[in-house]
Design a protein around this nucleic acid. Structure first.
Length: 616
RNA sequence: GGCCCCAUAGUCUAGAGGCCUAGGACGCCGGACCCUCAUUCCGGAAACAGCGGUUCGAAUCCGCUUGGGGCUACCA
């Protein structure tokens, strides 16, 4: 498949410096336009910057971005190699890494450099042509169960990145391994994503999406075609080694204290031998011939250049014995075929990225930009798993967490907004999101903060919205009065989850089934019964049932009886709600209404006098 | 074991060599308000993993150590 951008890339030869438009130390909006000289780019940049060598960071210059047909970047401190262009000013004070675009895309920085150059740039990782930016990202979950918070966060960041850059967010279902499929899991994942407010532009459920199919299992023909291609060019080979044999090999290596790797037994079989064994029907896999010298550098948008010695990789399997692809083979192909520009995924994939790069290289595919997000860990610092309680989005929903709050919380795990504000809805997040504020460190999720966040949403959302959200959690009958909406408004202050809110609201629709024991001991004396009786009588006659008139009654009775108002309030609350805590008494009673209030007071009086109180 | 990533309070984080006496948030403790609880407000305790190096100056750059995590499959 032809690289759709190669022509464009070759037509731009630009050097650009001083990209940080805010910094007073930078040289401003200076552009260096220089025709790209192969092998001499570093020198010409250096000349433009007025230094003698390309790998020195001139003062006041934060970065240089180059565009050309072929760039690669050497490690920190290495000198530019001929035929390549490399530089790295990390040694300088700004923590800037190299930046470059081309067939070997690199775009690295720690702070301050836009991932998308402002104008006149063509990059593969982030293509901008004449002010139009092309960003295509994807989230590729394996449908092996519910949507977990780690995956949700990855999806969220992809979504935000795409929207921020006006790009496209692709959802691809990574159902490569049929044996691990969980029924309905794809639907659940999609549902989970949607409930968080994440939307995608292309995916298995989007009809007419241009790069389909979006289920890896439906792309088999393509994977086989490319495996055959690699076989025919000799970049891959058939391996007839049995699992038992491989197991023995691994053990042998381990006993010698060496890393287990494939020995290459089938690497150089003759064509005749291969055909003979195939004819005999011997089961075999396909392995990719990986480079055994040199190093492979992953230009990671978040971490900078990560270098791997090619010798640590063996010829890994790309097609299983059933001739279905292995993940590392399929992703590379699918990401390429779907024209993905930025691969943003969890850090657990970083170590396998070189393998995918081998696939890209063998197939002559241009590389996307990579960004590896820090992991989300359980409170005990281990990988999130079942035993850590709620980790699935669906579980949080069931526990009464508002999904918008969960999304907001997840947003703050590994990323922070420039202005330090913590309550951001998705729309605001899209506006300010950037990969360069992503943390490098794994984050531990904290339920306490999630609950706080949830409460924030509980208070900030419209009352009607909360009313809708809490309905599924109400498992008791709700009458005409008091008005549901008003009850929500009064109760939400005391609830951190929707479950708690539903519980708080119950008292408005059902008289107490029991009275709080400590409260009874404190507030339900014989005298209290007498006071409640008086109050019940007075309230029954009250003409204007509102806050101020209620206060007036209580003030009057407290004066008549010579007791504090509190001595009336607490027994009333206990009588009316069965609890010692809750909304302000007058707000509560105003809303509850005369009939229910008086009735509950009378019931309490009777029960105090008959000592039928502590029953559950 | 090998390779890779990472390291600021219990947790999420700010931090781009001097703006740091290290800032914010959750949680915790104390106080104010109040009819209780909650909200709100005010205050407090709490961190640059350790050791070297570079520098006039290091949380920040480099190295080592330690610790944590990931990968090392015909899993994804």
């Amino acid at each position: 498949m032809l690289n759709p951008w190669s022509r464009l890339v070759r037509s731009f030869h630009i050097f650009y410096g001083g990209m940080s438009d805010e910094s007073t130390r930078c040289t401003g909006d200076t552009l260096w336009r220089d025709p790209l000289i192969r092998g001499g780019a570093g020198v010409s940049v250096a000349r433009a910057l007025g230094t003698s060598r390309g790998n020195e960071r001139p003062r006041g210059i934060r970065c240089v971005v180059g565009v050309g047909s072929r760039f690669s970047h050497s490690r920190l401190g290495h000198r530019p190699q001929s035929g390549h262009w490399s530089y790295d000013w990390r040694a300088g004070s700004a923590g800037i890494h190299s930046v470059g675009f081309g067939q070997n895309v690199g775009c690295v920085r720690r702070r301050g450099i836009p991932l998308i150059p402002p104008r006149g740039f063509v990059t593969l990782g982030a293509m901008t042509v004449g002010g139009i930016t092309v960003v295509r990202v994807r989230y590729a979950p394996s449908p092996t169960g519910a949507l977990h918070i780690g995956g949700a966060r990855t999806a969220l960041f992809n979504f935000l990145f795409a929207r921020h850059h006006g790009g496209t967010f692709v959802l691809r279902v990574e159902d490569t391994d049929q044996t691990r499929q969980v029924p309905d899991s794809e639907a659940k994942m999609l549902q989970g994503l949607k409930s968080l407010g994440i939307r995608w532009d292309e995916g298995p459920d989007i009809v007419g999406a241009p790069y389909g199919p979006y289920r890896v299992s439906e792309r088999l023909a393509r994977h086989r075609e490319l495996a055959e291609e690699l076989l025919s060019t000799g970049q891959a080979y058939r391996c007839f080694c049995t699992p038992e044999q491989l197991q023995r090999d691994r053990e042998a290596f381990q006993q010698q204290g060496l890393p287990p790797r494939y020995v290459g037994r089938c690497r150089d079989l003759t064509r005749e031998e291969v055909e003979a064994r195939r004819a005999r029907g011997e089961r075999h896999v396909v392995r990719l011939k990986t480079p055994q010298t040199g190093e492979t550098i992953v230009h990671d948008l978040i971490r900078g250049d990560v270098t791997f010695d090619n010798r640590v990789f063996d010829d890994f399997v790309i097609m299983k014995a059933d001739f279905t692809p292995v993940y590392n083979f399929a992703v590379a192909i699918d990401d390429h075929d779907m024209a993905i520009t930025h691969v943003i995924r969890g850090e657990e994939h970083l170590s396998n990225t070189p393998k995918q790069i081998f696939v890209y290289e063998a197939l002559h595919f241009p590389l996307p930009a990579f960004a590896h997000l820090p992991m989300i860990l359980a409170p005990d610092r281990s990988k999130v798993s079942k035993r850590h309680g709620a980790t699935a989005v669906e579980e949080y929903r069931e526990q009464g967490i508002i999904l918008a709050a969960l999304a907001n919380y997840l947003l703050l795990l590994g990323w922070s907004p420039p202005d330090g504000r913590e309550i951001l809805d998705l729309e605001e997040a899209v506006r300010v999101f950037s990969l360069d504020r992503v943390q490098h460190t794994a984050a531990i999720y904290d339920l306490k903060k999630l609950e706080w966040m949830n409460h924030q949403y509980m208070m900030r959302l419209e009352v009607d919205e909360i009313a809708e959200l809490v309905k599924p959690f109400i498992r008791y009958s709700v009458g005409e009065a008091p008005p549901f909406r008003d009850v929500v408004a009064l109760s939400r202050e005391r609830a951190t989850t929707l479950v708690q809110l539903a519980d708080q609201m119950r008292m408005f629709y059902h008289p107490p089934e029991s009275y709080d024991a400590a409260g009874v001991a404190k507030h339900f004396s014989e005298e209290a019964a007498a006071r409640l009786e008086i109050l019940a009588a007075r309230l029954a006659e009250l003409e204007e049932w509102d806050h101020d008139h209620l206060v007036a009654i209580y003030d009057a009775v407290s004066a008549e009886l010579g007791v504090k108002r509190a001595a009336l309030i607490h027994p009333t609350r206990l009588a009316v709600t069965g609890r010692t805590v809750g909304p302000g008494l007058f707000e509560l009673v105003t809303l509850l209404g005369r009939e229910a209030t008086v009735e509950r007071l009378k019931t309490a009086v009777a029960r105090i006098r008959s000592h039928e109180l502590a029953l559950g």
